[in-house]
């Protein structure tokens, strides 16, 4: 299969899961922390922050598992000055520490007894969460030999998707039966998600059309080749168009927690499919020797 020559093989499903969970977790944390600015201890604030921290930590476990020498991961803090991977490791470490502290405070505090510095902790968490969601995109965007990664749209796409999946998770959890929080509490977030879905559609359009000019084979692999299923059904269908429709219904009064739950699950599916596609479509461009293109094989 010709298109498989452009399949990326150095990173596999563990990295896909890390990217998904780190995006989902940071998005959910950000939503929770922003909610906390208006009502410090609401269910959505606590849930977003605690679940967000947990999911990022869970994703980090997959990242560590993926390493050839996990016990050496501490060395990844050494090259903050040049390496985005190292900068990301710092961001991830700080996010995890402050996120864990934040979660513990929230879990142990009685009503109205959060410390005075809590808003500072929440704000710092939002900044670090943006860093966690974005750094992987920046790192991939700098890899010049891989046309599907080497794109400045990628960090924006990752941030938007992180935010959207974060909202999706919280909407789905709030929709669960037996939950005390009224579904209406999520309305403003559903509105925000409609905006981010529209933005994501636009970003995906630009991502594919800009890349089509320089790597048509890789784009075809996404739209018509081996990644077409996850792309059309996962990213576009389950992840963007169906949630868009359901969320519109929810806002215009025709919605219900059941639909909210379905759209939330759809958003998560789409987020996972997006990471899957980006990771595996990232094959190396042929090496040019004079006017002749050689597809170099190892570390594909």
């Amino acid at each position: 299969m010709a298109s498989n020559a452009l399949w990326q093989r150095s990173w596999g499903w563990k990295v896909v899961l890390y990217l998904f969970l780190a995006g989902l977790g940071s998005g959910s944390f950000a939503v929770g922390a922003i909610e906390a600015f208006s009502s410090a201890q609401s269910f959505v604030a606590n849930l977003g922050i605690i679940a967000g921290t947990f999911l990022v930590l869970l994703g980090t476990l997959f990242l560590l598992w993926d390493l050839g020498r996990p016990t050496r991961s501490i060395f990844a803090l050494r090259r903050l000055r040049v390496s985005w991977s190292s900068r990301g490791t710092w961001t991830l470490t700080l996010f995890s520490l402050f996120g864990a502290l934040n979660s513990i405070l929230r879990l142990t505090a009685g009503n109205g007894s959060l410390p005075e510095f809590q808003p500072v902790l929440d704000g710092l968490g939002v900044l670090l969460a943006i860093g966690v969601a974005a750094y992987t995109g920046v790192m991939l965007a700098l890899m010049s030999g891989r046309p599907m990664w080497n794109s400045s749209i990628l960090p924006a796409l990752f941030i938007t998707s992180a935010f959207s999946t974060g909202i999706g998770l919280l909407v789905a959890l709030v929709s669960l039966p037996g939950n005390q929080t009224p579904f209406e509490a999520m309305e403003k977030w559903i509105g925000a998600d409609i905006v981010s879905i529209l933005l994501e559609l636009l970003l995906i359009y630009f991502y594919l059309s800009v890349n089509f000019a320089r790597a048509p084979e890789s784009v075809r692999m996404v739209t018509r080749g081996s990644l077409a299923g996850p792309f059309w059904l996962g990213v576009l269908g389950a992840g963007l168009l169906i949630p868009l429709g359901l969320e519109y219904l929810n806002l215009t009064g025709g919605g219900s927690p059941v639909l909210g739950f379905v759209s939330g699950v759809g958003l998560l599916t789409g987020g996972l499919a997006l990471r899957y596609i980006v990771v595996f479509a990232g094959g190396r461009a042929p090496v040019l020797a004079g006017n002749i293109r050689f597809l170099v094989r190892p570390g594909v």
Binding site: R72, F75, A76, L77, R78, R79, V82, S83, W84, S85, S86, G88, T89, M139, L142, M143, S144, G145
Partner: peptide
């Protein structure tokens, strides 16, 4: 490019 990306 390998050196720039290496975190360790």
């Amino acid at each position: 490019e390998c050196e720039k990306v290496c975190p360790t």
